[in-house]
Amino acid sequence: MSIERQEIEKLATLSRIAIGEDTITEVSERLSSVLELVDQLQAVNTEGVEAMSHPMKATQRLREDEISEINQREAFQAVAPDTEDGLFLVPKVIE
């Protein structure tokens, strides 16, 4: 299955990855090639087969509601690109 340019643009928007005009054809070819591989799945009869999202048949463990974390803002913000007054700064958010 080959993938249209329009679709690549939509994927780029959804995944917030800028794709240059010069590489869009190459990206499209690579993605089409992978889709061709995974399209083999379409031929399989999976009627009545349960989807498996986890290798182990375990269930979720529950944590007691007790505070176990201390304030480490300094340490975390030491690796942040831009902070001020304890806040992470980003270009203005428009709602």
Binding site: E69, N71, R73, F76, G86, L87
Partner: peptide, 27 residues
């Protein structure tokens, strides 16, 4: 009205100084 976050052990108390109750998981 839990004491801690849904997926981490950081406090949920209201009104703390910015990002002082955001642990590694919350970040």
């Amino acid at each position: 009205a839990t004491k801690t976050k849904i997926f981490s052990g950081a406090s949920t108390a209201f009104g703390a100084e910015a990002n002082t109750q955001a642990c590694a998981i919350d970040l």
